[in-house]
């Protein structure tokens, strides 16, 4: 259960948003919408524990969490902008590194099956440098299936994804939420998530 109590954020002297409160329970998803510069990414980074709110507090499972709180780091999968890939490493190496970094190293065939889910198995040993934006976004999705985390925080997850990719994203998020996970996404185009309790939050 993730709760936010009257969060507010500032960029320089201007205030992005203030007194923002919401709750997301297990098995629920939250879509954050809003024009550019309204603080969607700032809010997601706050929930991930990367930056501290100017005011207000964030509770994870009832306990207040500060930035880089170990409890939060064990529970969050943060897919930010840009996708975290090393251009020098191959798709497979990037995924294996991400899994090991998450504390649960994945076996080579687990990595291969994750790539298969996002239909990138043919690009397995290509350096990330040569992959297209859409393919890189798919590796981000593969990482979500490989690194088992409860709370998914997705920043503009749909960008650069083709129709099949977007459908895959919706299916993965839906399955994640239905099996007791949480998902919060900052997005312009709303995701169609069947049978999922969906909240939405518009930042003005």
């Amino acid at each position: 259960m993730l709760e936010a109590h009257n969060l507010s954020a500032e960029r320089g002297a201007t205030r992005l948003f203030s007194d923002l409160s919401f709750k997301v329970g297990t098995g629920e998803a939250l879509m954050i919408t809003g024009a550019n510069g309204t603080g969607k990414t700032t809010l997601l980074r706050m929930l991930a524990g990367l930056s501290a709110p100017a005011a207000g507090e964030i509770r994870w499972r009832g306990q207040i969490v500060k930035p880089f709180d170990p409890r939060l780091r064990g529970a969050v999968a943060f897919a930010g902008h840009p996708i975290a890939l090393k251009d020098e490493l191959t798709a497979e190496e990037n995924l294996a590194a991400a899994a090991a970094l998450s504390g649960e190293p994945a076996s080579p065939d687990a990595v291969r099956s994750a790539l298969e889910v996002v239909s990138l198995s043919r690009q397995r040993s290509l350096p990330a440098r040569v992959l297209s934006q859409g393919q890189r976004r798919r590796i981000g999705l593969a990482r979500l299936t490989l690194v088992r985390r409860v709370l998914w925080l997705l920043d503009e997850p749909v960008t650069a994804l083709d129709a099949a990719g977007t459908a895959l994203l919706a299916r993965l998020v839906g399955e994640h939420v239905q099996t007791g996970g949480l998902a919060i996404a900052a997005t312009h185009t709303p995701l169609i998530l069947p049978q999922v309790r969906l909240h939405s939050l518009a930042l003005a």
Binding site: R61, P70, R71, G74, A75, S102, G103, E104, S113, E116, V117, S119, T145, R148, R149, V150, L151, R171, L172, E175, H176, T179, G180, G181
Partner: peptide, 21 residues
């Protein structure tokens, strides 16, 4: 299209335990 995606059981690490190693 391809086999059903392996549904990841959303196990999160014990709250603040250091990972193995």
């Amino acid at each position: 299209m391809n086999t059903a995606a392996p549904v990841p059981a959303p196990a999160s690490l014990a709250d603040s335990a250091l990972p193995a190693g």
